[in-house]
């Protein structure tokens, strides 16, 4: 059948091995890109005409914010797939994503706060963008707290997946908050009406950082996924082979 590749792809031993093989191929490019992005963003890029060198916080703030939204979306979609098709591996992806997303959401809030102080004169404001991002952080914490409340992994998977899917509504709210409401936060600056608002010397390091952070997430996800898959395979014989090395 045409579906056999799909079952093979989603089979725990295949995922365990593939994730292990993929990890260095994601981790090393991520490290190189992040180092390149650091040199470009902190050293080579010119200062901003309004914010001076303070805008350089952008090179860690914006990629962290991107991860906070992307990882939540992956978590919710994986959780949804796990619910609909009862796929253990999808639940494992969702569970593996949560702590990564939560930590980068916290990084987004803290770096944003450190950027806000010199530019807006305050570390925090109950602004639509900031508030919706804080809610995203609480969604992650709620998801992880709910999982921790269940001894049984399968029950934790199903119930936390429902929460993840419901919470997905916050992702577009965070993204469009600066468009829908009057926000302290600046609007989208990478792509505005299809045209970047930055010169290439500023934009290229930012794009490198976006890619580097995304690959970093991929590498950490692969490591966590292997752990989560093992936790769900209590008696399978392939586990004997897998943990021997």
């Amino acid at each position: 059948m045409a579906w056999t590749w799909f079952h093979r792809l989603a089979s725990p031993p295949h995922i365990y091995r593939t994730a292990g093989r993929l990890t260095p191929w994601l981790a090393w490019p991520a490290a190189l890109l992040i180092v390149a992005g650091l040199i470009g963003g902190l050293y080579l890029a010119p200062p901003d005409y309004q914010q001076g060198d303070g805008y350089r916080i952008m090179y860690v703030h914006a990629p962290s914010a991107w991860l906070s939204l992307m990882v939540y979306t992956i978590m919710a979609v994986a959780g949804g797939i796990g619910l609909i098709w009862r796929m253990k591996v999808a639940h494992a992806v969702a569970a593996a994503s949560a702590p990564i997303g939560a930590s980068f959401t916290l990084a987004t809030l803290v770096t944003g706060s450190l950027w806000g102080k010199p530019m807006w004169g305050t570390y925090w404001a109950w602004d639509p963008r900031l508030t919706s991002e804080l809610i995203l952080f609480f969604m992650y914490l709620g998801y992880m707290g709910l999982r921790a409340a269940f001894e049984d992994v399968q029950r934790a998977d199903r119930i936390s997946a429902v929460l993840a899917v419901v919470g997905l509504v916050d992702v577009p709210i965070v993204h469009y908050s600066v468009v829908w409401w009057n926000s302290l936060h600046q609007g989208p600056s990478v792509m505005y009406l299809g045209k970047p608002t930055m010169p290439p010397s500023m934009l290229v390091p930012l794009l490198i950082m976006f890619l580097g952070f995304t690959l970093f997430f991929g590498a950490v996800l692969m490591m966590r996924l292997r752990g989560e898959v093992l936790l769900r395979e209590r008696t399978a014989t392939w586990v004997r082979e897998a943990i021997r090395t």
Partner: peptide
């Protein structure tokens, strides 16, 4: 450019 107390902690946190 005088923004060291904000830029460096942001990088350290990340």
């Amino acid at each position: 450019g005088g923004y060291a107390p904000f830029v460096w902690p942001a990088y350290a946190v990340t």
